[in-house]
């Protein structure tokens, strides 16, 4: 239909002003990173196609990738679970307790760096929590800089759970109550209502918010750098360290790590979009 085609063309035109800068910045950055990692735009010497940078980084790349995926997955799962609970609590007691909503919303404008510093002060072996509990630094588990990256996951989960709660709560607030009442009158108890009605209704929003959380955590640097251990490093920490190194010849390795991170994030987004399309078919 010509009307439909014209309408679509008009829609594309309207989107262009937003699309062009994004494509230019992200595209240019990615292309230059790829070129750098392949030795085609060296800082010193002649351009030459080579996989040297990838080979150089390969030793730590596998561990870093697994570590990054692990941190992002753990933080996402915790944030999604806590966020969903917050959203349910906030919508269940509509108007009666705005405190919960306010607390969740307050978390959002706090920068991650500030959150990380606070988490460090709270969870370190000489931090606030062990002092409050009267545990000596020796007996306190290594939450900050420890083997399990607990403080890092905790910080991401804390901050992102508020984001998840905001997104999911918005969806539930507008529709959950009437469906919940309908289900109750059809004989569904509390658990059945959650399992068969509330959760499916929240699923698209929860999935989208979780995908954003995962990708953000995967590519985020500062929290892992502050609260993590020096080795092994997650991908973004490794990329920043290599890029800032005084040895200029490792710059292409930094680019290789950055490209890997971007590819992983892109793959996660594509997978999430596919899953969400199925979930949102009814939304």
């Amino acid at each position: 239909m010509s009307g439909g085609t014209a309408g679509r063309r008009w829609a594309v035109l309207l989107v262009l002003p937003a699309l062009v800068p994004v494509a230019a910045v992200v595209g240019a950055a990615l292309v230059s990173a790829v070129l750098l990692s392949l030795g085609l735009t060296p800082l010193v010497g002649q351009p030459r196609l080579s996989l040297d940078a990838w080979r150089g980084a390969a030793g730590d790349l596998g561990t870093a990738t697994l570590l990054s995926l692990g941190i992002a997955a753990a933080a996402t799962v915790v944030a999604a679970a806590v966020g969903l609970c917050l959203a349910l609590a906030a919508t269940a007691v509509v108007r009666r307790s705005r405190l919960l909503g306010a607390l969740a919303a307050l978390t959002i404008p706090v920068p991650h760096l500030v959150g990380a510093a606070a988490m460090g002060l709270l969870l370190a072996d000489t931090g606030f929590l062990p002092r409050l509990l009267g545990v000596s630094p020796d007996a306190w588990p290594p939450l900050v800089g420890g083997e399990w990256w607990v403080a890092v996951v905790a910080e991401y989960a804390w901050k992102e759970s508020a984001f998840v709660a905001l997104v999911v709560g918005g969806v539930l607030a507008s529709r959950a109550r009437s469906y919940d009442e309908t289900a109750a009158l059809l004989g569904a108890g509390r658990w059945a209502r959650f399992r068969f009605v509330t959760l499916p209704l929240a699923a698209p929003a929860l999935g989208a918010a979780s995908a954003v959380t995962f990708v953000y955590t995967l590519g985020s640097y500062e929290v892992a750098a502050l609260l993590g251990r020096p080795f092994p490093e997650p991908l973004p920490v490794m990329a920043v360290r290599l890029a800032g190194s005084i040895d200029l010849t490792v710059r292409p390795q930094a680019a290789a790590v950055a490209v890997t991170t971007a590819v992983l994030a892109l793959a996660a987004v594509l997978l999430a979009l596919r899953a969400l399309r199925r979930l949102s078919a009814w939304d």
Binding site: T182, L185, G189, A192, F196, P200, A203, W282, D283
Partner: peptide
């Protein structure tokens, strides 16, 4: 008791059949 509201409030994530089967399923 079961109630029919002014709005149909069919569960949007279920097919027509599964909407009608809802009470039996939760039972």
């Amino acid at each position: 008791m079961a109630m029919v509201f002014q709005r149909p409030l069919l569960f949007p994530h279920l097919s027509v059949r599964d909407n009608v089967a809802f009470a039996d399923r939760v039972r």
